[in-house]
Structure formats: structure tokens, C-alpha cells
Amino acid sequence: MKKVISVVLALVMMMAVMVPAFAATLDVNTQSGNSTVLVDGITDKGDGTYSVEIPASVDLIWGDTTKAGEYKITSQVQTDKRVKVTLAKAKDLTNAANETIEFAVADATTGIANSAVVNNEAHTFNLTIDASEWAAASIATYEGTITFTAELADA
């Protein structure tokens, strides 16, 4: 019984390896025939590739109540996919004494690429800081963090 199974498995293996390059033929009776030119991108590239260029830093001027920023999406993904970038405040503005100035990502917390293939497509975002925050803050160097996360979303 083992022998039979091994032979069958071997055959199956062979089948897998054979390049399914089926051929078509023409002859006196069939003088024209079609052939498909096929690019199977999904098999070749899977989800494709994308990158998001985010600003190295967002420098605020003391008292700015809003600050705009920009990130760029470059992608080559499947037709029905779009790169979706989500911004989030990870850490309020914090100084060495661990004092904080609260800020918020105001709008466009998420950005979606316009198409599956974009090249440095710019997306803007705004940070807002209440004037009251500025007023209550001790003068120091503060640093906060915003995070960008990207994912593929359906178009």
C-alpha cells in the first residue's frame, strides 16, 4: 500500500512542477486562433507596495494655535485598494520638567490615497493648540509626538 501512495504522490508532485504552458494549434481547417496575453499582477506582486513620507518634525512657534503639516503617499497597490494613513497624537507637548501643553490633530486624522497608484501624493493635516494652553504653559522647549499608521483599505 505504501508503495502505491508514494508513486501517486510522486506523480502529483510532477504535475505541479509541469509548467501549464498549454499550446494551441492552427492547421488547414483552423486558420486563426486567439491567445491570451496575461499579466497576473496579484500573483506576482501580492498587495503591491506603498510608502508614506512623513515630516521629520513639526516645528511650532510659541502661541501657534494651529499648525499645518503634510505627508506624501506613494503607492502601487491593487486596483481596488487605497493607502489609508491615520494620524494620532501619541504624546502631548512635554518639556524637560514633564510639563505638558495639550494639542490635538484637528482634521484629516486620516488620509486616503486618491488611487491605487500615486506618486508622492500630498496630504495635509492640522494640529491645534488652544490659546489657553499657551497661556498656562511655562516657557520651555516642549516636544510631543504624532504617529502615522498606514494600511490598505478598500477603495
Binding site: G33, S35, T36, V37, L38, V39, G41
Partner: peptide, 27 residues
């Protein structure tokens, strides 16, 4: 041969693309 420019590749969404070519034989 079937040639596809690199620019074309770059600008194409990842997908399955296909076309039909016709082979015709005559004596």
C-alpha cells in the same frame, strides 16, 4: 516578444490584466 515599458508598469495598479492576440496562418 511582448514589451511593457517600465513607466507603464510603474503606473499600473496591481491587478490582473489581459488582452487577446490573434494568430492567423495562411498558405
Amino acid at each position: 516578444s511582448i514589451n511593457v515599458d517600465s513607466a507603464v508598469w510603474a503606473a499600473a495598479a496591481i491587478d490582473t490584466y489581459s488582452d487577446t492576440l490573434t494568430f492567423t496562418s495562411t498558405v
